[in-house]
Amino acid sequence: MYAHIIYQVSEGAVTITLNRPQVFNALSSELIKEITQAVETANQDETIRVIVLTGVGDKAFCSGADLKAGLDKGFTSLGDSLRENYNPMIQAIRNAEKPVICRLNGIAAGAGMSLALACDIIIANKEAYMSELFVGIGLMPDAGSLFFLPRIVGVQKAFELCSTGRKVYMEEAVSLGLVNKSVAYEALDAAVDELVAIYKTSATKSIGFMKKVLNQSLNSNLNEVLEQEAVHQDLLGRTHDFVEGVMAFLQKRKAVFKGK
């Protein structure tokens, strides 16, 4: 079904693995389309409650755009490429109603950094680094970096990272809030699995609405967010998981959520 990713489903979770190790998982148009399709497929699958995005090996999560592939095909419009390929991929991740965990196995550079930042949580190999290296080829960050970065680190720090393209290693990335946690590569799977275990047994509808309103809150005022909280809380109050959660609380037992 897929030529450039590995799509693995396991007990309520799916792992989408970028599989172009020969080019450090660089983003070709074909790979981008497969990532987008895989995320949308997982989001529509009611049996899937958490999505993990990663790359093969321990060297690179994603090294950014595959410039050679672009040159071989002949660049036409970089703007059109973003609109047709990159932007739908980022929107698929942000619009997914399920948590998306980035298992940052290695370097995330250029649009690869944007791809990581689009995820909800990042657990990283402590030997990895991130870099907005666009300036090195006379471009500016794209695929959402100029949206995510200032909201995470502030405008001045975002400007520094973008305008220098310097490498941000994981100790600094954690301190800046770019990454949630970094561990030795040998411990990466265990750290990700711990989160997956939480999310695949959690109240999936609740998490989906949290994500939706948090996305909207970035461009909303307080009154608008208060209303969105009221609207979505009303919907959650009619779900199986709300009833189960209340009953479990009253009965002093662990809730058994179904994501419904």
Rank of each mutant, 00 (worst) to 15 (best):
L27N: 06
I32F: 02
I35Y: 08
I35M: 08
T36A: 05
Q37C: 09
A38I: 02
V39W: 03
E40D: 15
A42T: 04
Q44R: 02
T47N: 09
I51L: 02
I51T: 10
L53A: 08
G55D: 12
V56T: 11
G57D: 11
D58Q: 14
C62S: 15
A65W: 11
D66M: 03
D66N: 14
L67D: 09
A69R: 06
G70W: 05
L71V: 15
D72R: 09
K73S: 15
F75E: 11
T76E: 14
S77R: 03
S77N: 10
L78Q: 07
L78T: 11
G79C: 07
G79Q: 12
S81T: 10
S81M: 10
L82R: 06
R83S: 09
Y86F: 15
Y86K: 13
I93Y: 04
R94S: 12
N95A: 14
A96P: 02
E97P: 10
V100S: 02
I101G: 00
N105E: 04
G106N: 10
G106H: 05
I107C: 06
A108R: 01
A109I: 13
G110P: 13
S114W: 07
L115N: 03
L117K: 04
C119R: 02
D120V: 01
D120Q: 02
I121L: 10
I122H: 00
I123P: 04
A124I: 04
A124W: 04
A124D: 03
N125G: 01
K126D: 15
E127M: 01
A128T: 01
A128D: 01
Y129M: 04
M130Y: 10
M130R: 06
S131F: 06
S131P: 04
E132C: 15
L133M: 14
F134R: 00
F134H: 12
G138L: 01
G138P: 02
L139T: 09
G144D: 03
G144P: 04
S145R: 00
F147Q: 06
F148D: 12
L149R: 02
P150E: 01
P150W: 00
